[in-house]
Design a binder for these strands. Structure first.
Length: 263
DNA sequence: GGAGATGTTTCAAG
DNA sequence: GCTTGAAACATCTC
């Protein structure tokens, strides 16, 4: 379920390997997840290198190794990071495994919508070029307003799924933001009143912050009363008014919302 | 067996 | 050149 908060959680899972050298690298070359990656270069650079630190930004992760080696991971739809015993036997979905003395760091992604990146030298461009994080002061109301204004004929749901402006927001968070803001996901951005645009901005920030504080820390559930708890069930009800949730494809994704309190 | 899945990328049309 | 929507990607689960 990798959206911003889950990504942050998975990043920390690999902290188990901090400050320890990699003794062996297992990588699947020639797969969709490793496209554009020189597998031999990864093996050569990371074997013997120490994991020095990591960061998460939106749905992306960056792992820094000694020798100026950088590993980027995106979890796609079904990616996961885990820690396994040092004698772990990777199967066909375990596309990258970093073996260390005490454990193995495993990146698994059956559906392969995720991505492995690799770079040697200074901080890679694909990391420094990312848009401002939602938690950053640069993610301003004006930025959101201008973005939505320029997409007058796009549904607001589709707009807040766009990573170039709402980095890290995925399908369930988008539904949560709109439900909390009481705005129908089908509304076109051009019809939003200034107060509604502000609500989108505010709720984006708060939903991200609270998800990071719960899911992001220990995979615990987000706060009580959120749409999150009912949106997965086909019989789900609105936590606010009790009406049955509506379901439709909006912005190309399954969307659930309350037809009564979201206008 | 079929449909759908918490995500991008690409392509074509407007 | 920009915006928008749909298809494609690969595999598993319900």
């Amino acid at each position: 379920m990798p959206e911003l908060a889950e990504v942050e959680y998975y990043r920390r899972v690999w902290d188990a390997g901090l400050r320890q050298p990699v003794t062996r690298v297992h990588i699947h070359a020639g797969k969709r997840v490793t496209r554009g990656v020189d597998a031999l270069a990864v093996v050569n650079a990371l074997t013997g290198a120490k994991l020095l630190g990591s960061e998460a930004h939106a749905k992306q992760m960056l792992f820094r190794f000694s020798g100026n080696a950088w590993l980027g991971l995106h979890l796609g739809m079904t990616g996961k990071l885990s820690v396994a015993p040092p004698d772990f036997q990777p199967d066909r979905h375990d596309h990258l495994v970093l073996f260390q003395k005490k454990q193995a760091l495993v990146f698994r992604d059956p559906r392969m919508f995720g991505r492995v990146r690799f770079h040697e030298g200074k901080t890679p461009e694909w990391w420094t070029d990312l848009p401002p994080a939602i938690a950053a002061p640069e993610f301003t109301a004006a930025l959101v307003r201008d973005f939505l204004n320029r997409r007058a004929k796009l549904t607001v749901k589709a707009a807040i799924l766009m990573q170039e402006r709402f980095p890290g927001v995925g399908n369930w968070m988008a539904d949560e933001i709109l439900w909390q803001a009481r705005i129908s996901p089908k509304r076109l951005c051009g019809t939003l009143k200034p107060a509604e645009v502000t609500a989108v901005w505010k709720r984006t920030k708060s939903v991200c912050a609270e998800a990071l504080a719960t899911v992001g820390v220990d995979f615990s559930d987000p706060p009580k009363g959120w749409l999150f708890h009912t949106r997965w069930s086909s019989k789900g009800k609105c936590p606010r008014c009790g009406a049955s949730l509506k379901t439709a494809q909006v912005g190309g994704r399954t969307t659930r919302w309350c037809g009564k309190c979201q206008r």
